[in-house]
């Protein structure tokens, strides 16, 4: 497989890269990159000593301990650890979900949440007055209750097969009902947020060390593929996160 790092513009060559791409030429150039904000100042390009440090991002903004453990166990079944690499738990997906539920998205800040509310047809989309954080909380309680009822155990103590069976019941939405919301609505949130947590930029709390990206050879945040876009061979490129822009 072809190499590749060498073919990507590195921080040290970014000025050169800008020149080559024509951005830094004169005239009425409108690209805001000229201001330098995108690439920082020169002294920034000095390599930093990487200190081993605590990940202060790994604490809870929304969940209590039990909710966190439930989420961690459930999302691991959505995207399990296997021979290809880490699962959702190791990737920090439960932290990602916690942080998202505490965010404006968790309280539907940019959604139309004005009544009256009617169930509507499936073609009309989500019509609940409940917010995502509320649906998720109710869904977790549902997982706990269902496990207790069906297996007389906590969800986190079920075997993987039992956990999968439970999640399938929630996905199908027939056998078990939640008050005020549907298990399918909760499951679909769980599923989509797990995938997001695996693959969103690591600054959001998941995709630990870009391992989600590495598993599928996704290079993350790269400035340019102009030199490689026509190539036939598959390029394995060391991924970069958005943090890369801050290192200067």
């Amino acid at each position: 497989m072809a190499d590749t790092n060498s073919k990507q513009p590195k921080s040290s060559s970014r000025r050169e890269f800008l020149k080559n791409s024509g951005i830094a030429l004169g005239g009425l150039v409108v690209g805001g990159v000229l201001g330098g904000s995108l690439f920082g100042s020169k002294k920034a390009e000095v390599e930093k000593v990487v200190e081993k440090s605590v990940n202060y991002n790994q604490a809870l903004m929304f969940f209590n301990q039990e909710q966190f453990q439930l989420t961690e166990a459930a999302c691991e079944r959505i995207f399990p650890q296997d021979e290809h690499g880490p699962g959702a738990k190791e990737l920090g997906v439960a932290f990602y979900i916690d942080h998202q539920l505490a965010s404006p998205w968790g309280i539907n800040a940019k959604d139309y949440m004005t009544g009256p509310f009617y169930p509507g047809e499936p073609t009309q989309g989500m019509q609940t007055s409940l917010k995502r954080a509320e649906i998720f909380t109710l869904g977790l309680q549902g997982l706990a209750d269902y496990s207790k009822k069906k297996y007389n155990k906590r969800f986190t103590d079920l075997t993987e097969a039992e956990q999968d069976e439970t999640l399938k019941v929630f996905e199908a939405g027939k056998e078990y009902q939640l008050a005020g919301t549907s298990t399918t609505g909760f499951f679909s949130l769980l599923r989509s947020m797990t995938i997001e947590g695996v693959y969103a930029d690591p600054m959001y709390g998941g995709n630990k060390d870009m391992q989600g990206w590495k598993m599928r050879n996704y290079p993350g945040n790269q400035m340019s593929f102009a030199k490689d876009i026509e190539k036939d061979e598959f390029m394995k490129i060391e991924p970069k996160s958005l943090h890369d822009h801050m290192g200067h």
Partner: peptide, 17 residues
């Protein structure tokens, strides 16, 4: 890179996706 009749000059696409 392209300069349009209004004198606006813009950089080439980097295929960044």
């Amino acid at each position: 890179m392209y300069k349009n009749p209004d004198g606006i000059e813009r950089a080439a696409c980097q295929y960044c996706a």
